[in-house]
Amino acid sequence: MPHVVTACSTCRQFTDGLAEFDVEADTVRRMIQALDRRFPGLGDHIDRRMAIAVDGEIFQDAGAVALTPASEVYLIPRIGGG
């Protein structure tokens, strides 16, 4: 199942310090829903504060992105710019 990693401490506040977890989901949207069920509040935090990288590519609108069992998903702080 897709492997989710976050190197960011703000996400780990919701996960009891866990930085990596496997999630049964076939799209990013379903992955976020599953994460929120497991770690209440994390889904909203991801929606508001995080960007999502799937297999190396950063998505700003990742909901519909398909996941495979081999997918690696990174939760990273959302990036702006100047």
Partner: peptide
């Protein structure tokens, strides 16, 4: 990358 994703 240090911030997570793989560079391509």
């Amino acid at each position: 990358a240090a911030y997570g994703p793989t560079f391509r």
